[in-house]
Structure formats: C-alpha cells, structure tokens
Simulated assay, not measured.
Amino acid sequence: MRSFWDSFIMLFIVLDSIGNIPIFYSLTSNMEESSRKKVFAESIIVASALLIFFALFGYSFFQYYNVTFMDFKIAGGLLLLLISLEGLIGRVEAETLRSEDVAIVPMATPLLAGPGSIYVVMYLSTVYGVLPTLLSIALNTIIAYFILVGSNHIIQKIGKNTILVLARIFSLLLAVLAVSMIRSGLEDALRQVLKGS
C-alpha cells in the first residue's frame, strides 16, 4: 500500500489534471458537450496507453532508438509552441477541429503524458515495481477524466466572452510552458555536451 500510495501521489502531481483544466477547455470550448467528453476520453485513453508502455518498456525503447528525455522536452515544447501561437492569433477555430486534432496532440501528449510523467512512471516502475505503478496510472487517469468532464459545468457558467478571453490568456501560458520545455531540453543537451568535452 505504501508503494502504491507514494507512486499515486507522485504521478498525480506530475499529471496536473487540475492545472490542465483551463487549457483543455480552451481547446474544446466550442465543441458540443458530447464531443468534448469524447475528446477527453480519447486523450485519457491515449495518455494511459503511453504511460503504461513506458512503465513497462521505457528503458528498452530509449536504448533501442537512442532517444533521450531532452529530445522529448524539445519536441514536446516545439509542438506546444505551435499550438499556442495558433490559439493566440486566432487561426484555430473549434468548428474546424476534429476530435483527433486535439485529443492525441496536445492533450494526451505532451500535456498529460509528457516528458515529466513518462520519466516518473519509468522511475516508479524501477523503484516501487510494475504493479503499484500500473495501478497508480489507472487510478490517476480515471480521476483525471472525471476532473476534466466535471470542470465543464463550472467553466460554462463564466460566460462565452470570458471564455474567449481566458482562451487567449491560457494560450499565452501554454506558449510560456512550451518555451520552458524547450529551454530545459536545450540546457540538458548543453550540459551533456560540456560534460563530454
């Protein structure tokens, strides 16, 4: 139980489902309620699959393809930056978005199953074992789904105009997060180069 509890808490903090609520809503704000729930469900399923995969085969995958966490950070950051810039300048209209446009990228990855959560499940699998890690992934992703679905009723009461303003604000915050991920990845790469020289 201690192993499960520790792994659950650590993954819950890294997934940050509550912190992702505004960003997720801004990406789906003009969708119908049923479509929004479908997008949330798809993103949770894909994120769960990714986390389970990396919990079981993460180290083997990284070694085989010679991929590093800094690669994940830089690629995920660039992806988020492009999406946030489109949101800021208003080029992405929800009417033109299909559920698969946002459910997998950026919602499932890199927002939920990003470099941080991937690293954590690999770490948890090594330290606490596979079973506690898989249980914590299952429980955390179920909780994340209900948090996201339940948040719609609260945010909808704010009003459409307020949502439009918030969408721009959170697109800016998403851009900041993206730049932070890119910077962190580049710093890791620079440290590795300096260490090797």
Rank of each mutant, 00 (worst) to 15 (best):
T96F: 13
V102G: 00
L194G: 07
M122D: 13
I158L: 15
I13L: 14
V105K: 02
F4R: 00
G159A: 06
S84N: 06
Y59G: 14
I163Y: 03
R91G: 04
L164Q: 09
L79D: 09
I52M: 11
L50S: 07
S3I: 01
M10P: 07
I45L: 13
S60M: 14
V67S: 10
N152E: 15
G159M: 07
L11R: 02
V46Y: 05
V39R: 01
E187H: 13
G114R: 01
S26C: 11
I44N: 01
A94R: 01
T162W: 12
E42D: 12
R2T: 15
G87V: 07
I23S: 02
S26H: 01
F170Y: 06
L134P: 00
L85F: 14
K160P: 04
E95C: 09
L27V: 06
F12R: 00
P106E: 03
I154H: 00
L51P: 05
T96P: 04
A47N: 01
K157W: 02
V179F: 04
Y119Q: 14
G159Q: 03
V92A: 12
L85Y: 10
M31Q: 07
F69M: 10
A178D: 04
G150E: 12
G76E: 03
I23F: 08
V165P: 10
S29P: 00
K160C: 08
L78N: 06
D188K: 08
I169S: 07
D71M: 07
V179M: 12
I21Y: 05
A178T: 04
I169F: 12
Y145M: 09
L135T: 07
T96W: 10
L50H: 02
I74L: 04
Y128N: 13
L78A: 10
A49P: 01
F69Q: 07
Y25G: 05
K195V: 00
R36H: 01
P22Y: 03
T28D: 03
Y128V: 08
M10Y: 12
L124N: 15
V39M: 09
R98V: 08
I182M: 06
I143H: 05
L172A: 14
L11K: 02
N30Y: 12
S184C: 06
M70P: 02
V121F: 05
N140W: 07
Y128Q: 12
A75Q: 13
S197N: 13
L166C: 05
A41R: 08
L190K: 12
S35G: 15
S34A: 15
I9D: 08
L190Q: 12
S84Q: 04
Y123M: 11
R2A: 15
D6E: 15
F72T: 06
V165I: 15
S117H: 06
F54C: 11
R168W: 01
D16W: 00
N66F: 06
V102P: 00
A47W: 00
V179S: 11
E93F: 14
R2C: 10
I158N: 06
L174M: 15
I89G: 08
L11W: 00
T133I: 10
I23E: 01
M181K: 06
V149W: 05
Y123L: 10
D16A: 12
S151C: 08
